[in-house]
Design a protein around this nucleic acid. Sequence first.
DNA 1: TGTACATCAGTGAACGCGCGTTCACTGATGTAC
DNA 2: TGTACATCAGTGAACGCGCGTTCACTGATGTAC
Lengths: 200, 200
Amino acid sequence: MTKGDSFNKLKEQERESRRDLIIGAAERVFSKKSFNAVTIRDIAKEAGISHALIYRYFPDQQSLFVEACMRRGAKIVEFIGKLIDDNNNIKIEKVTEHFIKFLVDNDQYFRMMTHFMLDGSLSKEKIGSLNSGERVLLAQFDRIFAKMSSGKNVRMLSHAYFAAMNGIVITFRNYPGRSREEVTSHMQELGRIIALKFKK
Amino acid sequence: MTKGDSFNKLKEQERESRRDLIIGAAERVFSKKSFNAVTIRDIAKEAGISHALIYRYFPDQQSLFVEACMRRGAKIVEFIGKLIDDNNNIKIEKVTEHFIKFLVDNDQYFRMMTHFMLDGSLSKEKIGSLNSGERVLLAQFDRIFAKMSSGKNVRMLSHAYFAAMNGIVITFRNYPGRSREEVTSHMQELGRIIALKFKK
DNA sequence: TGTACATCAGTGAACGCGCGTTCACTGATGTAC
DNA sequence: TGTACATCAGTGAACGCGCGTTCACTGATGTAC
């Protein structure tokens, strides 16, 4: 590697970390506002830069949004994966509890994901990358069901379980007239009910 | 009732039926476009009227959207209710099959519902009326679970079941690279898995 | 019957705003000679 | 060492568009006398 190469590489890394700062700001904004209400100007303000600068790092708004979404998605996969690694023969109730807690605590990711799933305006390529992220998460659930069941239909069980968890959080997220704690504990209770049904 | 009264009543009915025409047009537009992409002008065009006229019947956009959502919601409640009425001792697999089919066929309602659930910008009053609509649907599910189980925890079972169904449709609605038929049959398969788990 | 007036559905044009995106520019840093 | 130039992060202002909403107006219909 020549001197010029490593210099360029450093530059590239700096650029990459600046990109990261913007994505991080985006994640923070998504945690505060409803998805459709988030603007480029919001994110720029949160990052402390001019909104024009964002276009030096991302071709357009959608690309930034999708990247922010995927970064959060990678975190949940890592989280669940570690949970299974650390506790051998982990119980599904435990996974459920943590998964719902994660979704509630990080509901920006969750809202983004739902938005992209329901919105038809995403390019095929972007849908594809989001979907491969989803498959990685499903693979983690596969590991649990592979241990639990006799090995058949594992993927379908993962799908059903994943869908049910999503449904719980989406359906009861805005339960009116209840505090955040009450809503969360209701979701956890529903998660337990579903998890138990998946045991047999 | 005086002559003037009945005249006024007729006028009121006409006004009501014109409102209905607008809501109907809104439903049709929602069935074609993603929720956030629907505009007042779209609906006016579908109804064949000037977009300014909509404001003679609805105070603002949100009120129209919520009303369209609730009208579709009333239909699904009616549908499920009738299903239970007509078939005594109906099996939960059957209800699941119809419910998922209804959600897929009427996914405009479904998208609206999800939008309002995830969006925090709705007035308390409007969230309240949407929620009472949801409760009416849950009451139908209660009827099924009351017959099936020994009577305890019926409401929680309905919640969990309802959430799981929602989750299936949301999560796998935009499965990339699959035809509409393939996606639907996948959802039905997942619905069957969940329904069977709710039998015991 | 005719006339002046009230009511109200309906309209096209316009307002005002906020958004995504682009543009012309600055200023710092590195490079060639 | 000094100088002319290239590169590129970063910026504020502006563009263009589409949206929700309002406004001034028309025209039909009913009413009072």
